[in-house]
């Protein structure tokens, strides 16, 4: 997949007058992504808007194919030539959608860093870990030679890799999955970014290692003040790391709220379904309440609310018209009949 030269169709909306206590670091406005396929353009993200504040932590949660990764990768121009992106994603007010490659290269790894699900295959197998960190140091901070060497070692130390000096010379296949994810984080930190996008960073790892990595992310955030966007299918992982959550379903945000609010009283039937369909350690054991049916394929999305075919409370309105994300009292829900049910 070539990752260069995207086809862009940018629609600028006049910025709505906003009175915010703090300007957002990252702002997505009506971001839409479609992929060119044999059957024509397949829309996968249908207009997503959200902000990430400086130092904030936002969790994007949803099942595979819901568009949570695609949304973030679109902002960084990582989707390749088959993607058609419209809408806006700004970093400190500067538009990223349609930005020049040179500008994006400064943003990627420098202002916004990203780590991925499978750390082993996300690192280049033919270069040592140290060289891969030094590459970022050279690109974004102009560090070369001894200085780069010392800084790379400091970063590996910082992310908790023992005997960092030795490990720097080693290759990804010599390290464990957890070590490789730490090395990925070190690479991300090398550019001193303002935002870290972590795309399922612990999904491929064992649970004890997952906990270590989540703790490390929380530590680093506290220390550097960078914002974190955590993409995960696991509500527990989001709850551990984030202050805010956005739940995505079929390319839309269906609910957005602070973590405690969301888990204490989810409003959207999909969020409620997710919370009740998973076994939890702290609850009594009873029958799980699964969400009926399956996620619709993107090319066969229903006309109205995408969740309506699986929703027990769906009305004629739901099948006819997709609900908008409506804000009330510090939270937003995209549902014609938001429910109140305590988890």
């Amino acid at each position: 997949m070539g990752v260069e030269a995207l086809a862009h169709r940018v629609e600028f909306e006049p910025p709505a007058p906003r009175v915010l206590p703090q300007a957002p670091r990252l702002a997505f406005r009506d971001l839409k992504v479609s992929f060119a396929a044999e059957r024509g353009l397949v829309p996968v993200v249908h207009g997503v808007s959200f902000d990430v504040l400086p130092g904030g932590t936002l969790g994007l949660v949803g099942e595979s194919g819901c568009g949570k990764s695609v949304t973030c990768m679109a902002a960084l121009g990582l989707l390749g030539p088959r993607a058609v992106v419209s809408g806006s994603a700004t970093l400190d007010g500067r538009e990223l959608i349609g930005a020049s490659t040179a500008e994006l290269d400064r943003v990627r790894g420098g202002r916004i860093a990203m780590i991925f699900q499978d750390p082993m295959s996300s690192l280049n197998p033919v270069h040592s870990v140290g060289r891969q960190i030094r590459e970022s140091l050279s690109l974004h901070r102009g560090l070369e030679g001894r200085a780069a060497e010392a800084e790379a070692k400091r970063l590996l130390d910082r992310v908790g890799i023992p005997s960092a000096g030795q490990r720097m010379k080693e290759y990804p296949h010599q390290l464990s999955g957890g070590m490789n994810q730490r090395a990925m984080i070190a690479i991300a930190l090398a550019g001193e970014p303002d935002v870290l996008i972590a795309d399922e960073p612990t999904t491929a790892l064992d649970v004890t290692i997952q906990a270590q990595i989540l703790d490390l992310l929380a530590d680093i955030r506290a220390e550097t003040g960078m914002a974190i966007v955590l993409i995960s299918h696991d509500l527990g992982v989001i709850a551990e790391t984030c202050d805010d959550v956005a739940v995505m379903y079929c390319g839309r945000i269906v609910e957005r709220a602070p973590v405690e609010t969301l888990f204490a009283g989810p409003r959207h039937p999909y969020t409620i379904g997710l919370l009740h369909s998973l076994p939890r350690l702290e609850t009594q054991i009873g029958a799980l309440e699964p969400i009926a049916g399956v996620v619709p394929e993107p090319w066969a999305a229903p006309a109205g609310c995408a969740f309506a075919p699986r929703c027990s409370g769906a009305s004629a309105l739901c099948h006819a018209k997709a609900p908008q994300l409506a804000r009330s009292g510090g939270r937003s829900v995209a549902c014609h009949h938001p429910q109140i049910r305590f988890a």
């Binding site: 290269d105 860093a113 295959s121 280049n124």
Partner: peptide, 13 residues
């Protein structure tokens, strides 16, 4: 994936 990582690091094409 490592090519995607490289692009996401800001490595010129």
């Amino acid at each position: 994936p490592y090519v995607r990582t490289a692009v996401a690091k800001g490595v010129p094409w």
